[in-house]
C-alpha cells in the first residue's frame, strides 16, 4: 500500500514530502528503539515511532526507510523536518498510539519480513 493509503487508514496528517506519498510500502517497522530499527532486515518499510528526535530521520535515511510516521500526536523537531526534506524522507503523524496504529495496519499485507 502507498503512504497515501496508510495516511487514510491511520487518519494521519502530512508533515513534509507530499510529492513522495505514492511510494509503495511493503513492511512496517514499529519501534521507539532506534537500535532495534537499525537491526531490522525489512526492506521497503515505513518506520512508525513515538520518538521525534532528528536521529529518527537520520536512521530512516541510512536504513533506506521509505517514510516515517510519528504516533501519539508527536511532531518532529524542525531540524528533523529540514533533514527529511533533503533526504526525501516523507514524514506523517497521527494522534493514535503505536499499538492502535499497528492494529489499524494489521491485515494490510505489511507483515512481510
Amino acid at each position: 500500500m502507498t503512504i497515501r493509503d496508510i495516511m487514510e487508514k491511520c487518519d494521519a496528517e502530512l508533515v513534509t514530502g507530499e510529492e513522495l506519498l505514492d511510494r509503495e510500502i511493503k513492511a512496517v517497522c514499529a519501534s521507539d528503539l532506534l537500535s532495534d530499527v537499525l537491526a531490522t532486515e525489512k526492506q521497503d518499510f515505513m518506520l512508525i515511532t513515538g520518538l521525534c528526535t532528528p536521529q529518527v530521520v537520520r536512521t530512516a535515511e541510512l536504513m533506506g526507510s521509505l517514510g516515517v510516521m510519528y504516533v501519539r500526536h508527536k511532531y518532529p523537531l524542525q531540524e528533523a523536518i529540514g533533514m527529511a526534506k533533503v533526504h526525501e524522507v516523507p514524514l506523517i503523524c497521527t494522534k493514535d498510539d503505536l499499538f492502535e496504529t499497528c492494529c489499524k495496519l494489521a491485515g494490510c499485507g505489511l507483515e512481510q519480513f
Binding site: 524542525q78 531540524e79 523536518i81 529540514g82 533526504h87
Partner: peptide, 17 residues
C-alpha cells in the same frame, strides 16, 4: 523562526552532501 530552523537544517544537510 521555526521556518528558519527548517531552512538552516536543510542548508546544513545539503552542504554536507
Amino acid at each position: 523562526l521555526l521556518q528558519d530552523v527548517v531552512l538552516k537544517a536543510e542548508a546544513r544537510e545539503r552542504s554536507l552532501a
